[in-house]
Amino acid sequence: MTGTTRRATKQREAVESYLSDGATFVSAQQIYAGMREQGSTIGLATVYRALQGLVEDEGVDALRTDDGEVVYRRCRSGSHHHHLVCRECGRTVEVEGPAVEQWADAVAGQHGFRDISHTLELFGTCDHH
């Protein structure tokens, strides 16, 4: 366990377990409601804290939808990646973008920034629509 890894809590493990059942991105409100339906007594603030820790430890992907809502899904790959998201059905594909990484590093360097991070989501309509 590294120094930056947070201590696992029962609530955090429960949120992570709930997310492992779904293939699509869901909001914190949906996670909260789903867990309550399953009999959990978890609070909404606890769900948000658990999600933040899971995102920081890269166990959960978070993305901002086209309309600005943040949604979450269990991370499927262990490496840095981006998402293609269908506006119609929500289908999401994880993609790597080495050109994006090179561009981000170059732009940051030109402006004297280092130790940068970024997120990138691409929205469109998949072939199923």
Rank of each mutant, 00 (worst) to 15 (best):
V107R: 08
Q102T: 13
L84R: 10
H80E: 08
V95I: 13
R76M: 03
H111G: 06
R87E: 08
G109D: 09
R76A: 08
C75F: 04
R114I: 13
H118W: 15
C89W: 00
E101T: 10
A108H: 12
I116L: 04
G78T: 14
D115L: 03
P98C: 07
A99H: 14
G109L: 05
S79Y: 14
V93I: 14
C89T: 05
A99Q: 09
H111N: 14
H82D: 07
A104S: 11
H81I: 00
G78F: 02
V85Y: 00
Q110M: 10
G97R: 04
Q102H: 12
L120T: 07
R76L: 02
G97V: 03
R76N: 13
A99W: 10
H81D: 01
E88L: 05
I116K: 06
C75D: 15
G78Q: 04
A106R: 15
G90F: 01
G97P: 07
V100W: 11
C89D: 07
C86F: 01
G109K: 08
G90I: 01
W103M: 14
S79D: 12
C86H: 10
R76E: 07
H111Y: 11
T92G: 09
R114A: 06
H82K: 04
T92F: 02
W103Y: 15
H81Q: 00
G112E: 14
R76S: 02
A106I: 09
A108T: 01
H83I: 07
V85D: 02
S117Y: 05
E94Q: 06
I116D: 10
E101L: 06
H118L: 15
H111R: 13
V85M: 06
D115H: 07
P98F: 12
A108D: 08
I116P: 10
A104Q: 11
D105P: 06
S77Y: 13
S117E: 12
R87Q: 02
W103E: 12
G97A: 07
H82R: 10
G90C: 02
T92M: 03
H111Q: 07
H82C: 07
R87C: 08
S77P: 09
T119S: 14
H118E: 08
S79K: 15
C86Y: 01
S77W: 04
F113H: 06
V93N: 02
T119N: 10
Q102E: 15
F113M: 01
